[in-house]
Design a protein around this nucleic acid. Structure first.
Length: 241
DNA sequence: AAGCTCTGAGAAGCTCCCGG
DNA sequence: CCGGGAGCTTCTCAGAGCTT
């Protein structure tokens, strides 16, 4: 696809995203548009992190890749944190290129083998600093000819746009979470334990009507249509265990 | 004033049991 | 198996008292 229409098309898709869950579909489209195989958005690992799975926010990578990556704790030797943690410019790699090309990332032989096996020959990763002072990475990879300078700039713009969108949706979600009162969270926890309104009312020495009112407010705040969806969403947002 | 906590009533939906 | 009834659960709407 020609650069300008491709960027415009993806840009339109990103601006149409209204929920974080829709970001994965956009990542897939970006990957396809650039002839790549996979895209991942994740929280930047710290030296204390051992596994990558909990850091992944959205990814098209096969679960087997992440499992094997974590089995050998490869995140601890990830060149992105060992070498480019404080860098903000995009970094590319090409496992088939000679050592003086690209950024010359120092992959562990084990990591390199794994990436070769999953066809992650060529790739790029971008570093983003969020307003919460946390660092996020977005990486795109696949088996194709090296990414040109022009494509890299284009991909950088699109990735930045997607991250901004994701980040603003995340902030909106967090403000909703904070809006739940302590009482609403308490009722939500008991509901997740399978208790009915009457049972919760008896536990908290309140009437079942009161419990229903809390659930109702919580449903409105989290934009849910019933308590099943509410509990599922609360678990997904880690409001309750 | 706004938000939180608490209560009540009633409609609607769902599940279970029972008889045909 | 199917339909009807009973009981339980969920949801909606309305309102009051208290605190910040």
């Amino acid at each position: 696809m020609i650069a300008a229409p491709r960027q415009a098309l993806l840009s339109t898709e990103i601006s149409a995203v209204t929920h974080r869950s829709q970001c994965l579909a956009v990542i897939k489209n970006i990957v396809n548009a650039f002839g790549l195989s996979h895209g991942t958005l994740f929280v930047a690992p710290t030296p204390a992190d051992v596994h990558a799975a909990p850091l992944v926010l959205e990814s098209t990578l096969p679960i087997e890749f992440i499992q094997e990556y974590d089995r050998h704790q490869m995140v601890r030797h990830c060149p992105m944190i060992t070498k480019f943690a404080d860098s903000i410019r995009p970094h590319t790699w090409d496992l088939m290129a000679s050592s003086h090309d690209g950024d010359d990332l120092e992959w562990l032989p084990l990591t390199r083998d794994l990436m070769l096996r999953f066809g992650l020959i060529v790739g790029v990763f971008f570093v983003f600093n969020a307003q919460d002072h946390r660092k996020y990475y977005m990486r795109f990879e696949g088996d194709r000819p090296p990414i040109s300078r022009g494509e890299l700039n284009e991909l950088n713009m699109i990735a930045m746009e997607l991250f901004d969108r994701y980040n603003s949706l995340l902030r909106a979600e967090m403000s909703t979470i904070n809006a739940l009162s302590a009482r609403e969270l308490e009722v939500l926890r008991w509901t997740a334990q399978g208790k009915t309104s009457v049972e919760i009312g008896s536990i908290l020495t309140l009437s079942d009507h009161t419990i229903n009112a809390y659930m109702n407010t919580a449903m409105k705040k989290l934009d849910c249509v019933n308590r099943t969806q509410l509990v599922a969403k609360a678990i997904r947002l880690k409001l309750i265990q």
